[in-house]
Computed example of a mutant assay.
Amino acid sequence: MATPFAGKRALVTGAGKGIGRATVKALVECGAEVIALSRTEADLHSLKQEPFYLTFQSPLWHEVPSVKTECVDVSDLPAVEAVVKGAGPIHLLVNNAGVTQLLSVLDTTPDAYDRIMSVNLKAPVFLSQYVARGMVERGDGGAIVNVSSVASSVALTDHLAYCTSKAGMDMATKVMALELGPHKIRVNAVNPTVVMTDMGKMAWSDPVKSSNAMTQIPLGRFAEEADVVNAIVFLLSDQSSMLSGVTLPVDGGRLVH
């Protein structure tokens, strides 16, 4: 059986933990060669040691050599550009790396604002530019998925810079889809509700706060990593070949309010 991403090379940022790490595993298990970026060397080392279940071959657990790791902070644009230039053709890109800092409007500092915007918005824009240039030169198209958030549409207390960065990512996704579409490059975003990754726990581990947030979700639960990864894989695949410029809520109905 043909594999969804056989012969494809994917680059995933924020690959050391949470959604990014799970995305790397899903793409490898679907036949892709993956370049995993993280700023934490220990996370990349443990990722390389993890067994992968190759669903497209005979069932066999083993270390997969098709994961290449790069220890890079995505806000270091020259370093990221160097990774892209040395990677060979990249067919799939997942802009997943993100940061937040819980600060009110009155307490947000310029440094905190700049850091969040640099990682959450500026880095994905320019990484997409670097990768898209190669896609355009080759003429074979490609797919980009940006990991955004329902916070792009819903105001959250103590999330001024984070909400702003994700709103910017949604619009960047649409402009990229508009300009890159003629080159057969699809650009979409996934917009999860709370996912209890390490970053999610930092913001939502308080039971009173999380309970109040969950009451706004018709399905009555936060998202699991797999919920988001499944959406990412779908948007990267040919099964979504007519989707571009989409901001796909993975929110259990949160945005119906």
Rank of each mutant, 00 (worst) to 15 (best):
M1Q: 13
M1D: 12
G7I: 05
T13E: 00
G18P: 04
G20E: 02
A22S: 14
K25G: 06
L27C: 10
E29Y: 08
E33G: 08
V34F: 07
I35M: 04
L37G: 07
T40G: 04
D43I: 05
D43F: 05
S46A: 05
K48Q: 14
Y53H: 15
Q57L: 12
K68R: 15
C71D: 07
D76Y: 03
P78H: 03
G88W: 07
P89T: 00
L93Q: 02
N95R: 06
V99T: 12
T100H: 12
T100N: 15
L102E: 14
L102A: 14
S104K: 12
D107M: 10
D111Y: 11
S118G: 15
V119E: 00
L121T: 01
Q129N: 07
Q129I: 02
Y130H: 13
A132W: 01
R133V: 06
G134Y: 00
M135A: 04
M135W: 00
G142A: 02
V147S: 08
S148K: 09
S149Y: 07
A151E: 09
V154S: 05
L156M: 15
D158I: 09
S165W: 03
K166P: 08
A172C: 09
T173P: 07
V175D: 01
A177Q: 03
E179V: 13
E179T: 13
G181T: 07
V187Q: 05
N191F: 01
T193P: 03
V194I: 15
V194Q: 11
M199V: 15
M202Q: 15
D206S: 09
D206W: 07
S211F: 00
N212C: 14
M214P: 05
M214N: 08
Q216D: 10
R221A: 10
R221Q: 09
R221M: 09
E224D: 11
L236M: 06
Q239H: 11
Q239W: 07
S240R: 02
G245V: 05
G245F: 10
V246L: 13
T247M: 04
P249C: 11
D251I: 07
G252T: 03
R254E: 14
V256C: 15
H257A: 12
